[in-house]
Computed example of a mutant assay.
Amino acid sequence: MKTIEWKDWEIFCRVVEGASFTKGADLADVPKSSASAAVSRLEVQLGVRLFERTTRRVRVTERGQQLYDRVAPLFNELREISAEAVSVSEQVSGTLRISTPYEVGSLHISPILTQLLRLHPELRVQVDVSWEQPDLVEQGYDLAFVMTTTGLHDSSFASKRVVRIERGFFAAPSLIRARGLPRTPQELAGWPLLGDAEDRRWEFLRDGVEVANMAVEPRMRTQSAEIRLKAATDGLGVARLSPRYAQDELDQGRLVRVLPAYSSSPLKVFVLMPARKLMPASVRAFLDVLERTLGTTDRQGAVDVGITG
């Protein structure tokens, strides 16, 4: 009986996942020539064609897909068993890579990292600022924080909602003096607005119930709440922000809360991770500090704290 070359099977799975020999080789951490040779050996051994190859693309065959569907879960389980064995005695060290929106990072991730690094001197952390939902595996992140008004994009990653963000409406006193204080959401029609990149409608809630909504065409769009806050204090328009983020400007009299009886639809912050179990010690340590820092979660697993939106 011929010896089974398990590395060839693993490379085959990676080529399927990467949809190309180049990407599959990167995922398997082997040269492209080695990936091609591994798949060829496997095809000869099995007597079946696993991929249809053209000059432009590589497509897995029906038989290849059937084999992948059976084999890939076995390799995933083997990797988890290996990670579990290592994590039992694993020291919290190495580099923890995190992706986060700026506002989440500055107000909440920063104090968590301070505690984490004090507890674990051998640990290093890399924090990248992004408002997009990254591919954790492809981009090499251990954790990613994502803000959304609805839910997450389709994702095979484990996730947990950790923060719900209250939002209100704010403007400079000079803008209020020029236009008068609005009493209802409808009176904001025609006002200059400052929104994020995806703002198409603003919702107005009383006691958590939506009572009105308004189509918006902001004069300035930016994902950065910091820029929207500055523009609002300069009198350029009404901004939708977290009350906590705007608090200093409110205290200094540089901003006024518009329609204070109303709030807007909350933002939700999720933390994503590649797997719920058998995670690296550094990820477990971070999540432990995060849970202690953010407080008690509600029945839906979310913490009510006012961070920027």
Rank of each mutant, 00 (worst) to 15 (best):
G64M: 00
R70V: 08
S130W: 01
V92R: 08
L50A: 04
V60F: 00
R57A: 14
V92K: 08
E52N: 14
E80Q: 13
Y102G: 14
L46A: 03
R56S: 11
A85C: 10
T61K: 03
P121Y: 02
E62M: 06
F51E: 07
E62W: 01
L50W: 01
W131T: 12
Q45Y: 08
P121H: 01
L46I: 04
V86D: 11
Q45K: 14
L50K: 05
S110E: 15
L50V: 07
V60G: 00
I109E: 10
W131G: 09
P134T: 10
R63V: 11
Q65A: 11
Q65I: 02
P73Q: 01
L123Y: 00
Q115C: 08
T100V: 14
E84M: 04
L107D: 13
L113M: 10
L67I: 15
G105S: 14
Q65N: 11
E90P: 11
V60H: 00
D128Y: 05
R59E: 11
T54L: 05
I109H: 08
T114S: 15
S93I: 02
E62A: 12
I112P: 09
L117E: 10
R59G: 00
A85I: 10
I112C: 08
S82C: 06
T61L: 02
N76S: 13
Q133F: 02
R57T: 12
L46V: 07
A72S: 08
Q66Y: 01
V129N: 08
S110F: 07
Q126L: 11
N76T: 14
Q66A: 09
D135P: 04
S106V: 13
A85D: 10
L46K: 06
Q133G: 07
P134W: 04
T100C: 15
A85R: 14
P134K: 12
I81M: 12
L78S: 11
S130I: 02
Q133H: 03
Q66C: 05
E80K: 15
T61H: 03
P111M: 07
T55F: 04
R79A: 13
L74V: 15
R57K: 14
S99R: 07
S93E: 12
R124D: 09
P73R: 05
S106D: 12
Q45E: 15
H108N: 10
Y68M: 01
I112G: 06
G94F: 03
A83E: 12
L117A: 04
P111F: 03
P134N: 05
P101E: 07
Q126E: 15
S110L: 15
